[in-house]
Amino acid sequence: MRRALRAAAVLVTAAATIAVGAVPAHADRFRDDQWFLGYLDLAKAHAISQGEGVTVAVIDSGVEAHHPDLDGNVLPGVDVVPGGGGNGWGDLDGHGTGMAGLIAAHGHGSGAGVLGVAPKAKIFPIRMANSAGMGNGDAIVKGIDEAVTRKIKIISISVSAFSAVPDDLIDAVARARAAGCLVFAASGNAPEDFVVTAPARYPGAVAVGAVDRNGAHMTSSVSGPELVLSAPGADITSASKINKSAGTQYRRGSGTSPATAIAAGVAALVWSKYPTLTGDEVLERLTRTAVDKGPKGQDRDYGFGVVDPVAALTAPAASPSAAPTDGSVATFGASELPDTSDGGGLRLGVIALVVGALIVLGGVAVVIARTVRR
């Protein structure tokens, strides 16, 4: 069925509501607005790890490498847009810079600007679109493969390829997991999405949902059995594109986009603290220490729970005898996970519509036949 639905994917950002505006880069206004810093107790986490020595690939709209809150933390990357040839620097949309900022922003001056979850980590920008909504599923495939080729262990994808997507995207996620990478991907936002979108829904991906300021599941965050982790996603302030006439910009957005970047940043903290861990071991630590919400264990709204950086950094190593045996993504590789990807991000909707249409058409045909007989 997947081959029959190999149409080009439409790319959309996984942020629900974003307000972007030119603002002066002064004081602590933006840092104070980052409520998730306190919610995740990142000051305590940063006393243990700040992500040093870890690189995170951000597949998005590019990154403003010289934003004052990111300057020095953005490596030369690649462009996978048609024509390519660039280094991923520069961001016409601002979305990619926002996600990079949530992962690795270091602020500027004395406590000014925004701070990321892993302020000493590096960002490898993979620009797959010049602005929100441009691109296709093949661009994400190329982006994932570029990161794997460079042995980058954490890939953050805050965009979704929904409707029909290439089998190549499914295979790319599997290749990344087989190479020991963790692919964090946004689960999508209602009402535009109604099932976990691609690539988050594919075997081996770490599908991330969003919670609000109280740690409750955001109603706009798409739920599903594929969900693995949750992270703050409501009213999240971060960096944005630089407007030469207006100066440095920041943005505030809500959705599974920022939640995904924050979860990827927590993984960077853990891998920096424990550099010899495998990808499965890092993910096991993240899921085991997540703050369990909803029904006990993994559930459709929260996955295994909300990321807890301090617990993930300080918890004892997992006992081999305590390893889960339920086939969860926390301990199993991509090839061992159940394949739930039989039609892309709109799998259930497409199937329901097709079946419904067939039933209706069948009924019409019967009525017509009976009419003719009369």
Score class of each variant (00 low, 15 high):
W271V: 00
D301N: 14
L361W: 05
D91L: 03
D93A: 13
Q50K: 15
A16V: 09
L11Q: 01
I242T: 05
A330H: 13
T237Q: 00
V58Q: 00
G345V: 08
S328H: 08
V80Q: 06
P232F: 07
L182T: 09
G349A: 13
S110H: 09
V81I: 13
K153C: 10
A259Q: 13
I155T: 11
E52I: 10
R2H: 04
T256S: 02
K293I: 01
G84R: 13
P199M: 09
L42D: 09
L70W: 03
T276N: 14
A9C: 07
A210Q: 15
V159T: 13
E226M: 07
G72K: 08
G279S: 10
D301E: 15
T278M: 07
N136V: 09
S221V: 10
N87M: 12
A121I: 02
S240V: 14
R251D: 08
L115T: 11
T256K: 04
D212E: 03
V56I: 08
A104M: 04
G137W: 08
V23R: 06
D212P: 02
G297E: 10
Q34L: 14
G133Y: 06
D168L: 05
L286M: 15
A231W: 07
L283C: 10
K293D: 07
A57V: 03
T289P: 00
H66L: 02
D69K: 04
G72D: 10
F30T: 07
E192P: 02
M218L: 15
L115N: 01
K142G: 06
A357K: 00
D69N: 05
H67T: 00
G85I: 09
I154N: 13
L277Y: 12
I48Q: 11
S221P: 02
S257H: 04
A176K: 06
N189D: 15
R251M: 10
V80P: 08
D69I: 05
G297M: 03
L348R: 11
F184H: 01
